[in-house]
Design a protein around this nucleic acid. Structure first.
Lengths: 349, 349
DNA sequence: GTAATAGTGTCTTTCAGACAGTATGAC
DNA sequence: GTCATACTGTCTGAAAGACACTATTAC
């Protein structure tokens, strides 16, 4: 299920590489965005942190250059084979090609590039394999979930750790640059929080040695001895959050950032909802993705004026209060508006 | 300068591919966005259309998996080697991996994936090689330039051709889908024009057999005989626009669409401008990228309120009228606003 | 009745679009 | 003076944010 295990030809240097396809498969259930993870297998197994922090892995499949006519067809093929999931919405994210992303490459094996994809599936459709599980994605990025207010770990763990990172800069100019970057990416010292900078935040934490993967990678490369002065000391000084194998958490960060941007100008939320839904369901899904609570009435008005949905006349009464009307996505909006998204209104309820 | 020419091992099937790196290098000079093209070489040379429509090619370099630590470093390395250009802003666009994108793959050679990049360089910095030239990118996409109003070729050539394509659909449902798609992507029959759908438009024209590349590819695959009922008849029925080698025009379309989207929420325009500039210069560059004329006063107000620029106090008097003040990018905006872009105001002046 | 959610009305501020107007240079 | 561009002022309508209010269910 994970990385190819044939390791015959090691590094016959004729400019060739292998291609891996990684899928970030997202669904929203119980107001929680989740991604499909698999158990890391083979030599990647042992990479988990010590204190119960077990690594997850993204579903992965190699591209078969002979059979797969397009990358996307290759992806949907092995996802279907492995998980019985039929992917609907699929979008290419990014191609990750750093040499150091894969331990084998460092030890002279063939280099593996991986093309990351984002796929959205409907709530309810769940794969039936036991090695797989749907994990709430904020387990991997606790600092990204602002639905219950500013996450305490930002002030408690991230800001002080970044302060130390800033202070550790070589010269004043460096420190100044670090300060600015930390402030902008994490919204510190009066800078605004930008929900879409998910990748920038993860990469900053990685560079500052504050996520497990950074420590793992520096230990691997310098074989034993602590690297940047932060390695090798268990989990001390790490920011909370479940880690992943290889650079998979980076891929997920890319996916989250992209998705947060996209809901604002393309009607992708509806890929995650059943065909009919109530306004509150819709709002909860958007909130889950955006990671913030939205103003109810304004959200309603925005969606309404945007012409994104239309009522069905049907009511549901399991709301816990007054019955709600069921709505469906208004297909015609595509030919009326250039950018039909949910355009997030103000925060909080 | 173009595709790798070693063709020794043809298709030894062990799941490996070669990686090519393509760069869409953009500059804006004389109010015209331009991209750096090279003369197609080797077996790609003969692909030009007959009627003086000569194909261009993007600068291309192979990834050296041994030497290039990251894809981006590989890209900047060979761009520097080939053109003496030092790339500043570089952004990965997309990875193109269709098997049929490369003639050699179809005839059993090794499959080549290409990773497309967008690079922005400053006006004035121009490469000194003679095989290269800066071509206005609307030569490749004449239907994308609305600065002098709706391009006549949309009504004259594109709409009727798409009508024929719609009519040619197999069943009524197909025709309905085609109609809707054509209307939305090209803003026909009352649908709005969306400047960012550059790729969708090119791909539609390709599928409908209305660009040179479509005809070329179908002729190649069916070796002589006209394919979809439109092949092999010179340039009759083609939509105007300079073609490119392989799928390079698709890559450029991706770049243009991405850039048009990005200027609205990231201050990338300034990568294309000198350090100081007048308001009108800034507006002209934005208009060149967006492909529309903007309302002058409102543009000014938007940029001003956005805090994107600050005055320098200096004046320039070669404006043809009253001297204009020079402005510079306000760096501090990055920590003040989450999405500092130029947020296009209404069309026309 | 209370609690909980669904849905409407409206006030205010901000912002986008469009109009006009004045300022300062070249000729 | 004319012409061309630079820059400012202000009106208007639309949209965003925030508040209050009514409606309909379960208990």
């Amino acid at each position: 299920m994970a990385l190819k295990s044939e390791s015959g030809s090691n590094g016959e240097s004729n400019g060739t590489v292998s291609i891996g396809l990684n899928a970030v498969i997202v669904a929203v259930t119980d107001e929680e965005p989740r991604l499909l993870t698999v158990r890391p297998s083979g030599r990647l197994r042992g990479q988990a942190g010590k204190g119960g922090r077990e690594s997850g892995a993204l579903p992965f499949g190699p591209l078969d250059p002979e059979k797969d006519r397009t990358l996307e067809l290759g992806l949907t093929r092995w996802v279907r084979e492995q998980t019985n999931l039929e992917l609907g919405y699929v979008e290419q994210l990014y191609t990750f090609g750093d040499r150091d992303r894969e331990p084998r490459s460092r030890s002279g094996g063939r280099r593996v590039l991986s093309v990351g994809y984002l796929a959205l599936v409907r709530e309810g459709q769940v794969a039936g394999r036991e090695e797989t599980s749907w994990r709430p994605w904020y387990e991997f990025f606790p600092w990204e979930d602002w639905r219950r207010g500013r996450p305490p770990l930002i002030d408690a763990a991230i800001e002080p750790a970044l302060d130390r990172w800033v202070e550790g800069g070589k010269d004043p100019l460096r420190r100044q640059e670090h300060r600015e970057r930390a402030d902008i990416t994490f919204g510190l010292r009066g800078a605004p929080w930008d929900g879409e900078r998910v990748l920038e935040r993860y990469e900053l934490l990685y560079e500052a040695g504050l996520v497990f993967e950074a420590r793992r990678d520096s230990e691997l490369s310098s074989a034993g001895e602590p690297a940047t002065g932060m390695g090798g000391r268990g989990e001390a000084g790490l920011v909370p959050g479940r880690s992943m194998v290889l650079d998979h958490r980076r891929i997920v960060a890319t996916a989250l950032g992209r998705l947060r941007g996209k809901i604002r100008y393309r009607p992708v939320v509806f890929e995650l909802l059943p065909p009919t839904f109530t306004y509150l369901q819709l709002q909860r899904v958007v909130e889950a993705l955006a990671g913030v609570r939205l103003h109810k009435q304004n959200f309603r008005r925005l969606v309404e004026k945007g012409g994104l949905v239309e009522g069905t006349g049907q009511l549901v009464s399991d709301t816990g209060g007054r019955p709600a009307e069921l709505f469906r996505f208004r297909h015609e909006v595509l030919r009326e508006r250039p950018t039909p998204g949910v355009g997030l209104p103000g925060v909080h309820s």
